[in-house]
Simulated scan of single mutants.
Amino acid sequence: MLYVDKYRPKALEQFQLHSDVADNLRKLVVNGDCPHTLFYGPPGAGKKTLILALLREIYGPGVEKLKVECKPWKIKLPSSSIDLEFTTISSAYHVEMNPSDVGNRDRYVVQEIIKEMAKSRPIGTDGQRSFKVLVLNEVDQLSKEAQHSLRRTMEKYSAACRLVLCGNNVSKVIDPVRSRCLCIRVAAPSLAQVEEQVQAVAAHERLTLPVPLAKRLAAASERNLRRALLSLEACKVAQYPFAEDQEVAAPDWELYIREIAADVMLEQTPKRLFLARGKLYELLTNCIPPEVVLRRLAVELMRKLDDELRHSTAEDAAMYEHRLQEGQKAIFHLEAFLARFMSNYKQYIISLGA
C-alpha cells in the first residue's frame, strides 16, 4: 500500500494539519447541521481526506463500503437523445462523481443524472442522517451552464440531499453556488509541516531519513503533501539506506515539459512548433490536465527569461488558461500559447541584435 493511503487520517479527530477545520466540522455534525459545503484549496492540501472523514463522522464506518460503477445514461432532450457514460463511487449513503469528465456535456449530468440521484434518500436512516450526500469533484472545472443548473438542484432537493463540492480555485465557482454553500478553505501545508509529516511517515516505516533529504523532499513537493510522500517512496525504491545528497527525482511529465520549454527557447520556427504539438498531445493522452501543462510550461519558460518578457508571458498564460475553461480542444490553446511565446521571444531577440 502507498504511504499516501496507508497514513491517510480516517477520522476528523486524527487531523493534525487542519485540526481547526476538523474541529469545526465535528461541531456541525454534532449539532445535527450539515449544509451544502464547498471545500477549496491547492492540490495535495487534504480536501478529499477531509471530505471522507466528514462522511465517516456523519454515517459511521459503513460509508467506507464503496462500490465503483461505470454505467451508461441515456438523456432525452426535446429534439434528440444523448448517451453518456461516466464512473461513480458510491456507498449506501453517498455518491461521488466528477461531472467535468464528460467535457462540455456536464450540464446534462447536472440537470438529469444528479437530479435523479438527489431525489432518493438513504435507506434505514433517521434524524440528521435522513439525507444523501453527493460529492462533486473538480467543481471549478464545470461550465457556467452546469453551475447554474447545480444551483437549482441545490435549492429544490436540499431536504433529501446535501452537496459537498470540491475544487482547487473558488474564483471559478459562480457566486450563486458559493452563496448557498459553507465555504471551507483547506490551505496548503507549510514546508516545515511537509517536512515534519515526511519524517513522521519515515519513522513509522522505521526508515532513517537524513534531515537534508527531508528538506529537499519538502521543497520539491511545492507544499503538496501527497507529492512529498510519493517522492519519499520513490527515493526509497531508488536507494536505501538514504544518502544526504540523494537526488529527488522529478516526475516524468515535468521533465517532458522542461524538454518542450528548452526546445522552444532553442529555435522559434514552424517546424519546432509542430514537434512541440506532438509532445503536448502525448502529455494530454497520458491524462496530464491541460491547465497543469500550461502552468508548468509558463513556469519553465519564465525561468529562462529576462524580467522584460516575464510579465508578458505571465499575462499570455493567464489569458490562455481562461480560454481553456471556455473552449473544448485543449491542444488549440496550448499550441496557441507556445506560438505567441515564440513570436514574442523571436522579436525580442531580433530587437537585441538591432
Rank of each mutant, 00 (worst) to 15 (best):
G46T: 04
L334V: 05
I349C: 12
E155N: 08
V194W: 00
H322W: 10
Q328H: 14
K172G: 10
G44T: 03
G167T: 10
K132I: 09
T88H: 04
V173W: 02
C183T: 05
E155S: 07
R310P: 04
A11I: 05
I260G: 01
D316H: 09
A146F: 10
L266D: 11
T153W: 00
R185A: 13
T153M: 02
G167R: 04
Q268M: 06
V201L: 11
S130D: 06
A188H: 05
A118W: 01
F337L: 06
L50T: 02
C235E: 01
C181L: 05
V248S: 02
A228F: 02
L12Y: 03
S91G: 13
R277Q: 10
K156M: 14
G103H: 05
S343W: 10
P290A: 05
R180Y: 10
Q193N: 11
C287I: 11
Q16K: 11
E85L: 04
S221D: 05
Q128K: 08
L163K: 09
F274P: 07
Q268G: 03
V248G: 05
A249T: 15
L142E: 07
E267K: 12
L52K: 09
L150H: 09
Q193P: 06
R223S: 12
S143D: 15
A159Y: 12
L225T: 09
V201H: 05
S231G: 09
A339P: 07
V110E: 07
A92D: 12
E57F: 06
L284I: 12
M154D: 11
L309R: 09
I51C: 03
D307E: 12
N24M: 07
A298R: 12
Y40F: 15
S171C: 09
R296D: 11
E326W: 10
L136P: 15
